[in-house]
Every structure is written in structure tokens, then in C-alpha cells.
């Protein structure tokens, strides 16, 4: 049973920002928020529904980056030509997470703000060096994903800020996304992106938040070293030694998928 709440449905970004500034909780797909409300873990007084805000719609590719509005669902992202071409691992993660209903309803922005430690989206976005645009009544700021997520379920977003868009640098180099999910939430996710100036490896799901490891090139990636260094949280998906082992295995498999020899 959901607790009682006011539901406001602004039709402009300005109105939405005002409502959030005065204590409203941003709400769009609800796949995460309604779940925690149902469990009694949150009981916001006012939900600000973003589904009628035109400024938050759509995926655009321009100026070497892809912009995903706050209303973009996982399914839209997974099916988007722009995302598939320039941020293939994001499309992969968005197409695999949860289930078909969650992907049709849930948004990337909501996922990012929720900061669930096992988020496929966060793993992919961190590897892609994405950033988020936050807007409040006082102004706007852009924060790299790396700085945005502080830990499990915590971000630097202030209560009066609205996540307006996610921006992802467009890349066409080799990349890979692998996940091991014998349970509902993945046990480990690995994203690898080869950029012009190095290789970004992100390990997700094993700890409180996805963790970034950078190397000069794909040939320099050392799965064992990553597995030794990554922060682990034990849970029903596995103990520490198992998760470290899986980390090495799946970093290796991601490199294999990219065609990196000797992985």
C-alpha cells in the first residue's frame, strides 16, 4: 500500500523546478520511487510528475555528445540509433536491466538519482564519462557522474534540484558491456571503453557504487589488479572472495568481447 501524497503535474520545466524547489519530490517512471514508498522507506508529501514537461523529453545527438532528457526511458535509450552508435554500452545496459516493464516505464534519470549500487546505467555512464545537468530555482550546474554518486543510494543532488538531462560524450571506439546476473540484481557488471587517450574500465554491482579504473590502453588492463583493488560489499549475491574472482573473470570477458588479445 502506498502512503498518501499530493501529485502535481507541471507542464513546463520552470513550473517543475519551482515545485521541486518548494519540497516536491521529482517523479517520472516511478519504478524505484514507488517501490520504496510501498516498502515504507520513503513517504514524500508531494510528487512532482515530470511526464508532462516538454523540455525533458527525447534523445539528441549534437556537438559530439548525446543528451538524454530526464523523461527518457530505458527502452527508448536501448532502441535509440544515436545511443546504439555513440554509446553502445549504455544501450546494452539499458536493454538488459530489470525487465520489459521496468524498461518501458523507468527512466535513466530516475535510475541515476536513485543510485542503486547495482545499477547497469551507472556502470555504463561512468565508463562513458557522462555528466548530469542539475537545475534548481537558483540556477544550473553540470556534475560528472563520477562525482555525482557518493555511495549506495546517495548522490550530491540537493533536494531542491532537478536532474534535467544526462550528457554522454559520443564515442565510436571499441567498448564492451558484460553482466553476470543469476539473481534479479546483477552480481557484477563491467563496462570497458577505449577512448582516444586511454581505456576506462568500470566495475559495478560488487560494491556500494560503480568504480572506475583507467589505463593507458586496452592492452594494459589487468583484470587481476582491478579485482584486488575494487571495493566489495558482501550480500546474498556473494562473499568478498567470490566477487573479486568474478570481477577478474568478467573484466577478462569484456576485453575478450572487444577482441583484446591475451585477455
Amino acid at each position: 500500500m502506498l502512503p498518501p501524497f499530493e501529485l502535481r503535474r507541471p507542464v513546463s520545466l520552470a513550473a517543475a523546478v519551482d515545485l521541486v524547489a518548494t519540497g516536491g519530490t521529482p517523479y517520472c517512471g516511478g519504478t524505484e520511487l514507488l517501490a520504496v514508498m510501498r516498502l515504507g522507506l520513503a513517504s514524500p508529501e508531494t510528487l512532482v510528475d515530470l511526464k508532462r514537461v516538454p523540455e525533458l523529453v527525447g534523445i539528441t545527438a549534437a556537438h559530439g555528445e548525446i543528451r538524454l532528457g530526464a523523461r527518457v526511458t530505458h527502452r527508448e535509450a536501448a532502441a535509440s540509433d544515436a545511443v546504439r552508435t555513440h554509446a553502445a554500452i549504455l544501450a546494452a545496459g539499458a536493454g538488459l536491466l530489470g525487465n520489459v516493464r521496468v524498461r518501458a516505464t523507468g527512466t535513466l534519470a530516475g535510475n541515476v538519482c536513485f543510485a542503486e549500487p547495482r545499477s547497469d546505467i551507472l556502470t555504463a555512464l561512468l565508463a562513458l564519462d557522462a555528466s548530469v545537468d542539475l537545475r534548481s530555482a537558483d540556477g544550473a550546474r553540470s556534475v560528472p557522474i563520477e562525482d555525482f554518486v557518493e555511495g549506495a543510494f546517495t548522490t550530491v543532488r540537493a533536494d531542491e534540484e532537478l536532474l534535467e538531462a544526462i550528457r554522454v560524450p559520443a564515442r565510436s571506439g571499441p567498448s564492451a558491456y558484460v553482466r553476470f546476473a543469476p539473481a534479479e540484481h546483477p552480481t557484477v557488471t563491467v563496462a570497458v571503453v577505449a577512448t582516444g587517450d586511454g581505456c576506462r574500465v568500470v566495475v559495478g554491482a560488487v560494491g556500494e557504487r560503480p568504480e572506475l579504473f583507467t589505463f593507458p590502453g586496452t592492452g594494459d588492463v589487468d583484470p587481476t589488479a582491478i579485482a584486488e583493488r575494487v571495493d566489495i560489499t558482501e550480500d546474498l549475491n556473494g562473499h568478498e572472495d567470490y566477487k573479486r574472482h568474478l570481477t577478474a573473470v568478467f573484466v577478462g570477458r569484456a576485453l575478450e568481447q572487444m577482441g583484446v588479445a591475451d585477455a
Binding site: T31, L34, A35, R38, V100, R101, V102, A104, T105
Partner: peptide, 10 residues
């Protein structure tokens, strides 16, 4: 036309 979980949808 989109599948949703009606138990967790307003």
C-alpha cells in the same frame, strides 16, 4: 501499448 506493472503504477 507499453507493458507496465499495474501493482506499482499510479
Amino acid at each position: 501499448g507499453d507493458p507496465v506493472s499495474a501493482c506499482s503504477y499510479l
